[in-house]
Structure formats: C-alpha cells, structure tokens
Computed example of a mutant assay.
Amino acid sequence: MAKQRRSFSAEFKLEAASLVLDQNYSFPEASRSLNIGETALRRWVKQLEDERNGCTPSSKALTPEQQKIQELEARINRLEREKAILKKATALLMSEEFERMR
C-alpha cells in the first residue's frame, strides 16, 4: 500500500529550519528529533536562508514578511486581470455605441 504523503505547516517548517540555522543543530540531529526526512529539512533550511536574504520563494513562504509579499503579489495580479477585463468590456461597449450612432 502506498504511503500517505505528510504535509507540514509553514510555522512547523520555519521552526524546523530555525533549529539548524539559529540553534546549531545538525541536519541528521534535527530531522531525527522532528521525525522528518533530512532532504525536506535541507530544502526548508535553504528556503529560509533565501527568504532571509530577501528572495521571494516560488513555493509557500516560511517567514511572515515573505508570506505578506506573496499575498500582495497575488492581489496585484488579480487586480491587473480585473483591470484588463474592464478595459476589454469598455472597448466593446464603446464600439457597440459607435455602431448605434451611425
């Protein structure tokens, strides 16, 4: 039977990565104590290092600052899509109005 894939919250990932970066745990030591894979822990530590250096991650952010940036970027994208729709609708309505005036 296939193993169920576990998922972890951003807070858990942040705490796990902080063990390695801030509390000087080794990767094997931290992964054993948290019962997680070492590869996943290495990925989270790399992501946290990148976020602390100001890089916005492509996956779900770990730090609150990067989470806020991702939320704001998503909002900007949504508003830009809405603006484009409104522009097209306005152009369509204007062309229909112009045809009626002829």
Rank of each mutant, 00 (worst) to 15 (best):
V45H: 02
Q67F: 06
L41K: 02
R102F: 15
S59E: 09
R102V: 13
E82N: 12
R102C: 09
F27S: 02
R43H: 09
L93A: 15
S7I: 10
E38L: 04
L72M: 15
E97Y: 15
I85G: 02
S95D: 11
F98W: 03
M94H: 10
F98E: 09
A16H: 04
D22F: 05
A16N: 05
R102G: 10
L86M: 14
K87H: 11
K13Y: 02
L34I: 03
K68A: 12
K3L: 13
E97M: 13
R78H: 13
I85N: 08
A10I: 03
R5M: 08
K88M: 10
I36R: 07
A89H: 12
I85Y: 12
E82L: 14
S33V: 13
P57S: 05
S33R: 15
N35I: 00
A17N: 03
Q67R: 08
R6C: 02
E71G: 05
F27D: 02
S18G: 14
E51Q: 06
I76V: 14
E51S: 04
R81Q: 15
R75L: 14
A17D: 02
A30C: 05
D50H: 11
V20D: 02
L34G: 01
F98C: 00
F12H: 07
E82R: 12
E96S: 13
R100Q: 05
A16C: 08
M1K: 09
E29S: 12
F27Q: 03
K68S: 11
S58C: 10
E82C: 12
M94G: 00
T90W: 15
Q67E: 09
N24W: 08
R6S: 07
L48F: 03
R78A: 15
N77Y: 11
C55E: 12
K88Q: 00
E96R: 15
L41C: 04
Q67K: 08
A30W: 01
K68N: 07
E82T: 01
L41G: 04
N77M: 15
E65K: 13
E82K: 14
L48W: 01
L86Q: 09
M1L: 06
P28K: 06
K46E: 09
G54D: 01
V20I: 06
S18F: 07
E99P: 05
R5L: 14
M94C: 04
A16F: 06
Q47N: 01
E29D: 07
R32F: 08
V45M: 03
A84I: 00
E38D: 01
G37M: 03
E97A: 15
N53A: 15
S18C: 07
A84F: 11
A91V: 00
W44P: 05
T39I: 14
E99Q: 13
A40T: 00
P64G: 03
A84L: 12
Q67L: 07
E65I: 15
V45R: 03
E49N: 13
E96Q: 13
E51V: 07
Q66L: 08
V45D: 02
K83Q: 14
S31T: 05
S7M: 05
A61R: 01
L48K: 03
K68C: 08
S7K: 09
R100C: 07
L86V: 00
S31C: 11
L14N: 01
N24Q: 10
Y25T: 06
S59C: 05
A10W: 03
E65D: 12
R5Y: 09
E38R: 06
K13W: 09
Q47S: 04
P57E: 01
T63D: 06
L14E: 06
